[in-house]
Design a protein around this nucleic acid. Sequence first.
DNA 1: TCTGGGGTCCTAGGACCC
DNA 2: TCTGGGGTCCTAGGACCC
Length: 306
Amino acid sequence: MQRLRAVTPLVEQISIDEAFLEVSDLPESGEVLARRLQAAIRDELGLPCSLGIATNKLVAKIATDVGKASSRSEGTPNAITVVPPGEEAAFLAPLPTRALWGVGPKTATRLAELGLRTIGDVARQPEEYLVRHFGKFGRDLARQAKGIDERPVVTEHAVKSISQETTFARDVSERQVLLRTLRAQSERVGRRLRRLRLHGGTVKLKVRKPDFTTLTRQATLDQPTDQDAEIYAAAVKLFEGVWQVGQPVRLLGVGVSRLGSTVRQLSLWDTDRERQSHLQATLDTLRTRFSDRVIRRGSELMDRNP
DNA sequence: TCTGGGGTCCTAGGACCC
DNA sequence: TCTGGGGTCCTAGGACCC
């Protein structure tokens, strides 16, 4: 990402190892920049990478995927694929619908049932037809298939939710193990909230059973929080609502959403929350300096020896 | 591939209000 | 007592992405 930001500050990171760069206003062509970038990443970091160059994000992304897939046969994927302006639709036409963003296994099957296998097949359908079958997404589908995408490169994305989940090595049905897990997860979620200076307004619990059915339960808090104990309390309440004693659990998770910036609460009516907040900050400091295990709350010990 | 972890967005139904 | 329409908020689940 550092290497990318050296080319332009207009970088939109979309995952740990992918990003869009807006290079329209740079003096050099996209292709020249791509070659330089690829060489720098190879020489300085010893890493292969693939790049796609096009007039919009959709086509650039698909161009990257196509190049990456075709160069995989030669060992490491290290492709550069250019789609010249005006050739977007023609480039996409022969590709399977799966290549489009938002088309996964389910949608690809539904499209195939309508006789639509390639992006070109989709591009030939009237928008209303696609909307009739796919709702709002049909509109996107019609535009994407023609290579139309007007979304700008956005350098910052607000975080919408923070969560932490664990799949157990083997199914767990002991209440205290499950509660201990929820506790640890609530702490990690809380810590990330505080680090980002955010509060969460909704707490969500996720439970997956051995047969893979997955339940989620969420609750909106009276007041947004960044406190481990409050997140944990809400999670436990939700957990008690879905879990029956002895029931095995495969996966457990806790998350918060409806995030907003931390607002300093006036402590007039909230002295207890205020004190909890200070205690939390102290715990964070200790745990950062030493380890997560160095200090625990008395209430946590209760999980083990009720 | 008997299926990990962390996300986003959409849909649908119910509660509640005017 | 039953009726309408619209809007908002909340919850649950599912598809999809890397």
